[in-house]
Write a protein that binds this DNA or RNA. Structure first.
Lengths: 203, 203
DNA sequence: TCTATTTGACTGACCAGTCAGTCATGTTCT
DNA sequence: AGAACATGACTGACTGGTCAGTCAAATAGA
């Protein structure tokens, strides 16, 4: 039994199929090496159809990266610091699963894609910086300041460099993409050791 | 006054010119987008000449990355731990300048290139892993063990994860490539804060 | 029927890699 | 020494193939 669909719905579905196919293809091959005909084939659509939805290859690329990243933008402010015993427990409860998800999921692929192609797409780098990095930095910084208040941080100066807290995640994403098959790493243990380094012992 | 050159010398010079030009071109545009004709033009040489020295575009790419990375291999074992007061001072004396050099020099460009193209060139990823990462990891680990003996490390468990020590460098390289122009970072201060986090205070 | 949507063959530009020919350099002979 | 010859490094026009983007024709919905 086949559900009836309006034309508008079909069009939307096609667009989503194209976006999903394009994400796979770009992640797999990078921008230059990805063929629009291949994206179309994966989406079960003719090449021309891709051009009904996106002006050109660059527009398609930027659209899928923005789409994939937008949910992250939403989630960044979600963690509340109110009435929480320790900042470390917050990190363990939220940052650790988030990191493991990013490293192992499609989001990690997108991050790698951005790192690889960012220089050729400065607008994308700007978008990422403005919409994700800056809020994320501010959020981490807020948490770190709270941790300093609580006397949880071994090095209070860390509050000025939230990027140092995030660096192991970036490294893990890159490692997962390039070396995990040669030399597997236990990312969870790595991240826990990182927390042990940041926070006072015996909390 | 023009020095006389033998044929062999001229050939060598041309080869070097091609390698240098190719490095610039690949760093600037990535593997796919780089045109051999452009490499040739930059080297002041005809396109065919490039193919007298390198079998194809991939061979040229691998050659320049290996060439650029080999000096790093040499230098890794050079730091001695004998009769040094503190491991931290060793890091400050050697690792900090090394890191600043990598972040700001051509070596950083090559590292970014490797991160971007590594998935498409597994042999290169393997080479980098075997010749650089593994020895570097072992070396850092040796230093960390010594630091544990000295009671210098705030978190002795860190000795199991030398990558955590290197993560800020990787992050800096990526930041330098993508965001430094939007949002400059003082890499030296960042790295010093990193050291403050790793080592006991008041050393 | 008539219109909006989709299709895929087609075009034009582009580029990796080739190869027949050139010529500077090095070698041998007188 | 100097002329005649041999070498092979270098050149760049050319080939074969690829692919982004177009558009006239086919198709499916209203």
């Amino acid at each position: 039994m086949r559900a009836k669909r309006t034309r508008a719905q079909q069009t939307d579905e096609r667009r989503l199929a194209i976006v999903a196919a394009a994400l796979d293809a770009f992640v797999e091959s990078g921008f230059e090496a990805t063929k629009i005909s291949d994206v179309a084939a994966r989406a079960g659509v003719a090449k021309g159809t891709v051009y009904l939805h996106f002006a050109d290859k660059e527009a398609l690329f930027e659209a899928i990266v923005r789409d994939a990243l937008s949910p992250v933008v939403q989630g960044i402010g979600a963690i509340s610091t109110d009435g929480v015993a320790s900042v470390r427990s917050l990190f363990e409860a939220f940052a650790l699963p988030l990191m493991l998800d990013i490293v192992e999921s499609r989001r990690g692929d997108v991050l790698r894609l951005l790192i690889s192609e960012g220089r050729r797409f400065p607008r994308l780098a700007e978008f990422y910086h403005a919409e994700i990095l800056t809020p994320a930095k501010a959020h981490i910084q807020r948490l770190l300041c709270k941790a300093v208040e609580n006397g949880e941080l071994r090095n209070p100066g860390l509050a000025e460099y939230p990027l140092l807290v995030a660096a192991p995640m970036l490294m893990s994403v890159i490692w997962a993409g390039l070396f995990q098959r040669l030399d597997p790493i236990d990312f969870e243990a790595l991240f826990r050791t990182h927390l042990d380094t940041l926070f006072m012992p015996g909390a």
